[in-house]
Design a protein around this nucleic acid. Structure first.
Lengths: 293, 293
DNA sequence: GATCATGATACCGAAAAGGTATGGATAGGG
DNA sequence: CCCTATCCATACCTTTTCGGTATCATGATC
């Protein structure tokens, strides 16, 4: 059967047109080369070289075979290299799920950095509602996800990469806007705008817990799924909201942000299955840890 | 060294995920397959399969390698097939030179037929002035050429594929247009339009010889290189011309064609170097001979 | 016509491939 | 819970193939 070695021999000979020199280049002696070329021609059933007494020349079929053989050798070597790269996580695919808040904090820097250092990995970033992320990771839908810290979950590891305070978002004309720092009890009775529990349970819990620490039960006037919408509604003076500080970057007219006393913090973690064998995952986690510093 | 056999083994195993069945498909027993796969993994330095007790599964690197290996095997087999096709003249390049007259006679049918039967051959058709064709073929510039019969030439073989009479082209109002058949001596004194000697010597010779057979020396009023132009000038009543019958197909207003008594004939031949080793040439010549029938 | 260069052939030892027999691990059934 | 069937790995042997050395045949060159 024809094999890749005979192709390499053929290309060497086709490029030198001299059995002796080609053999030298291949680090073998001349007779084996003669035999391998003869065997190749016999197995192909095609005469590849015209043997003249002083030099060899390619036949037309040989010229054609040279073109093809070069391409085969290149793709062959590439395949071997790619396998090694894939095992080291430098080539492959990596799917990352994230909640919207990450798009305003760690995600852009992390994604840019990872892609720059691992250009061979096709990264798929997909935003989903935070509540579905843990299940999606456990189901293998994502290799990793960036979410609020869900606490310990069997089969899931997490690493905190970002931690931020919640702050108060209110309309500029709202009485609370006059205070530099707001205490929890001052929020009593204020109509709150927040995401529904099923969208971001951890964020919601933090808000509820903070209100209770002020001695009252929060009243949610509006529940909307998009964080962007929440702050817009606050800017329309339809209520107040507790939002991660990073939302303050949006720069919305008539909207101000105020510090909270003993502000609750919320953690962004990267979460993954330890049993996930995608080699591209570990380098990604390493980048995530580096970003967390 | 990794070779193509190991790649075939790998693909078979990757597709069955079962050493026993893959070995069966490869017509070998299971232990050699196990060893070859192990050797492949060792040489690559990459673990390609996870061995479970009940079945094997591909690693991420293995999946990547499978994609690449399939492509390599396909191009490898294709290279071998292409070499065989190239030797049989079914794949490659063929350059054909022709004089313009051929474009009105045999060339379209021959080219269409050859390309239909040999779709793998890239055909280059190039029109040049007839006088340069023999030298171009001898110089290896064309694999074959279609030209007027140049007579025997060293290092050139020819085969007649078309033979046609010359006829008279005159303006519809010309006195000669009243005769159905013209004799050579009737042309005496008429101003002739023809191609210059250096463009189509054979055609020019035939015209001169015919005039002399009528007992007079021809007088060429106009010499133009393009046959198309000649008939247009005749249609403008600037002279008469002797042209191959096939030119009558052009259908030009005010132009009529008349038979010549003892009309000279002119042969179209295909010409080639017998020493030309392009495998695509012989099938082309075979088609040319078939067209000549 | 002698010589040199070049590729083919003959023969041998080494390496590698495949085959058979068998061992070890594990999932599934009784 | 043990037994068995399945499946892959290993050991060992035989055959094939590969590369090396020596030598031959051929044709170009002086």
């Amino acid at each position: 059967m024809i094999d890749i070695r005979q192709m390499r021999y053929f290309v060497a000979l086709a490029e030198t047109l001299h059995f002796g020199r080609a053999a030298e280049r291949l680090h073998i002696s001349q007779p084996p080369l003669s035999r391998q070329i003869a065997a190749l021609e016999k197995e192909l059933g095609v005469r590849l070289f015209e043997r003249h007494s002083r030099r060899a020349t390619l036949t037309h079929a040989g010229r054609r075979f040279l073109e093809d053989a070069r391409a085969v050798l290149i793709s062959f070597d590439q395949a071997c290299r790619n396998a090694r790269l894939a095992e080291r996580g430098e080539l492959g695919e990596l799917s990352i799920g994230f909640m919207m808040h990450a798009a305003y904090t760690v995600l852009p820097g992390l994604a840019r950095r990872y892609m720059a250092n691992h250009p061979g990995v096709r990264v798929e970033l997909r935003e989903v509602v935070p509540a579905t992320l843990t299940d999606a990771v456990l189901a293998g839908q994502f290799d990793a996800a960036i979410m609020f810290n869900p606490g310990p979950i069997r089969g899931l590891e997490t690493h905190t990469i970002y931690r931020e305070r919640l702050c108060l978002a209110v309309h500029a004309s709202h009485p609370l806007a006059d205070h530099a720092v707001i205490r929890a009890k001052q929020l009593a009775g204020e109509p709150l705008i927040a995401v529904p529990t099923d969208v971001a349970p951890k964020l919601r819990e933090a808000i509820v817990a903070y209100c209770r620490s002020g001695g009252f039960e929060p009243t949610f006037r509006l529940e909307v799924a998009l964080q962007q919408t929440i702050v817009n509604l606050v800017a329309e003076n339809l209520g107040i909201a507790l939002v991660p500080q990073s939302m303050g970057q949006l720069g919305i007219a008539n909207l101000v942000h105020r510090k909270l006393e003993k502000a609750p913090t919320i953690e962004h973690v990267v979460a993954w299955r330890p049993s996930n064998l995608n080699p591209a995952l570990q380098p990604f986690l390493a980048e995530a840890r580096a970003v967390a510093l």
